[in-house]
């Protein structure tokens, strides 16, 4: 019997993963730019994070068969990564709006605390899709450490691109620094995508499900196509870096939109490539007959 494919998690779940990953990464980029580079991004950019996460939750909500029971998942945080993810997302939305409120009220001591809390929650939101997939023991392509790493990096690059998109309108003077960060993240993304494929291929020699996942990821429109689009994004970011004025914004926007597209499509491909291990194996049949 061949490995079977999961068909339940599709584009809407991918959209939730994409939106929550992008939204939380925006905050991480915001926080790290202040901490490492001492560069304060406009807090209005931060507003996009909770909005994206709320949009992701709405999409996830529409996917539920009985949304009226959603509250039970919030109440059962110890049960699964799906429940934890819902809680992290809700906390992040609260923290995001809390930061905006603290900034508006100029309550800086409170801001310091909520900034740190927001960073921790953003990290949790960032890792939850990877952990949720990792918990599916029977799908080898998901149940590996490389899945965690690759989902994390794709989320971060999406966040970087979303910050460029938002700041092009709100804080254009921040664009050069953000372009450098986005180029680094996109380069990491290409490397991680390739490493993920390598990890899948080596796993595929031992597990049939992983082998089919690898083939699915290799197909037209798969990870390599997305990596090629990311190379184009990097080129666009480079051109934008050396440009000025309106041209810089337009090229930076094109690059960030392309990165966001690849970040979303990667999630779709990852979910589509979810192959279980075969239920009935030759080994099982042989051992039964040998015992007869």
């Amino acid at each position: 019997m061949k490995p079977f494919k999961q068909n339940e998690f599709g584009k809407r779940v991918a959209a939730d993963f994409f939106l929550s990953g992008t939204g939380s990464s925006m905050y991480i980029v915001y926080f790290l730019s202040a901490l490492i580079a001492g560069f304060k991004l406009n807090s209005a950019i931060l507003l996009a994070g909770p909005v994206l996460i709320l949009a992701g939750l709405v999409i996830l909500f529409s996917e539920l068969g009985k949304p009226s029971n959603f509250w039970r998942s919030v109440a059962n945080y110890r049960t699964s990564w799906m429940a934890r993810g819902a809680i992290f997302n809700l906390f992040y939305v609260a923290a995001g709006f809390g930061i905006l409120l603290a900034e508006a009220l100029r309550s800086y001591s409170f801001l310091l605390w909520i900034d740190a809390a927001g960073f921790v929650i953003a990290l949790l939101v960032l890792v939850y899709p990877g952990m949720l997939l990792h918990a599916v023991k029977d799908i080898p392509a998901w149940n590996s450490a490389s899945t965690l790493a690759v989902t994390l990096i794709f989320a971060l690059s999406g966040g970087g691109a979303a910050v460029i998109l938002a700041s092009a309108f709100i804080q254009p003077q921040a664009l050069p620094e953000e372009l450098v960060a986005a180029m680094v993240l996109n380069a990491l993304l290409i490397i991680s995508g390739e490493l993920y494929l390598k990890a899948l291929r080596s796993l595929g020699s031992r597990k049939e499900g992983a082998d089919l996942s690898y083939k699915e990821m290799q197909k037209k429109g798969g990870v390599r196509t997305l990596a090629f689009l990311d190379v184009i994004s990097i080129v666009l970011y480079m051109i934008a870096f050396f440009s000025a004025g309106a041209l810089q914004y337009v090229i930076a926007l094109a690059g960030s939109l392309l990165t966001l597209y690849t970040a979303y499509m990667f999630r779709v491909r990852l979910l589509e490539a979810g192959y279980h291990q075969p239920i009935i194996t030759k080994k099982f049949i042989d051992s039964l007959k040998n015992k007869a």
Binding site: G65, K66, S68, N69, S80, V136, I139, G274, H276, I279
Partner: peptide
């Protein structure tokens, strides 16, 4: 049940 289908995906026996 809230119909999230996580269990359908996780079940190794379809």
């Amino acid at each position: 049940c809230m119909g999230c289908r996580y269990c359908v995906v996780a079940c190794p026996f379809m």
